[in-house]
């Protein structure tokens, strides 16, 4: 398979069939797409259209039934579980709808955690994590636990965690769905800024018009197929 050297992700004719108690469910039906450095892409579509399924495949959390997913030109299907964990650790940051911070760790420790997994020494990771929290405007929350923070604050910590290892790509599955619209806008502005200034690549899934409105590239998903692919909307 020919892959462009600069592509971060290439999704090639991907089908994903789930089995719902023995009944096959076609979640994705022949998806082709790429993610390029600096992208700020949104995958939009109604509920059940396959957004989460697609992001999970790009994020190497799952494997396609047919077709292939390449990360930096490497076929995900050929990797072991351990290699995939390492790819996720070094190349992919995740932001979830439900924030999913570690409840026993403070904001600072949540960010440090991924750096620790990469083997960065304690002093260095503390310094970098604090700087990141400052940059995202939540420096004063460093020692708070997730249950002491608002949703917007938690999602900022989640973003800090996602970008802490300088990933090639951040995947965000409906990151604003649990937030009120003001908070959502601020969070989006923050991510736009990270995309602009730090050239961090984002791929979102969303049906939030505020998210869709900011997309540099919009992919519309319907019944497991991409029905529209617009650049620079």
């Amino acid at each position: 398979m020919n892959t462009n050297a600069s592509e971060i992700v290439r999704v090639d004719n991907v089908r994903k069939v789930y089995s719902d108690n023995g009944v096959p469910v076609d979640a994705l039906r022949g998806i082709n797409m790429t993610v390029l450095p600096g992208d700020f892409s949104v995958i939009a579509g109604p509920s059940g259209s396959g957004k989460t399924t697609l992001l999970n495949l790009i994020g190497t959390l799952d494997k396609p039934t047919e077709g292939a997913v390449y990360i930096d030109g490497e076929d995900v299907a050929s990797k072991t579980r351990r290699q995939l964990a390492d790819i996720r650790l070094r190349k992919i940051g995740f932001v979830f709808q439900a924030y999913n911070l570690n409840p026993v760790l403070s904001a600072l420790e949540n960010v440090e955690f991924t750096m620790m997994l990469r083997g960065i020494d304690a002093a260095e990771r503390k310094r970098k994590s604090l700087a990141l929290l400052e940059e995202l405007g939540i420096g004063e929350l460093a020692n708070k636990r997730p249950n002491e923070m608002s949703g917007g604050q938690q999602q900022r910590v989640a973003i800090a965690r996602a970008i802490s290892n300088d990933p090639r790509l951040v995947l965000a599955d409906e990151p604003t769905a649990n937030l009120d619209s003001d908070t959502a806008v601020k969070l989006l502005e923050l991510m736009e800024k990270l995309n602009h200034e730090d050239r961090i690549t984002f791929v979102f899934s969303s049906h939030d018009p505020q998210v869709i409105g900011r997309a540099h590239r919009l992919l519309i998903l319907k019944d497991g197929q991409i029905v529209d692919d617009k650049v620079n909307v």
Binding site: G59, L61, R81, R82, A85, D86, I87, R88, L89, R90, I92, G93, F94, F96, N100, N102, P103, F113, T114, L117, R118, R161, N165
Partner: peptide, 16 residues
């Protein structure tokens, strides 16, 4: 279970 799923997603190895 949910937490371990997140740990795996962010790149925590089985060994860890």
């Amino acid at each position: 279970t949910h937490e371990f799923g997140v740990d795996m997603a962010i790149g925590m190895s089985n060994k860890r």
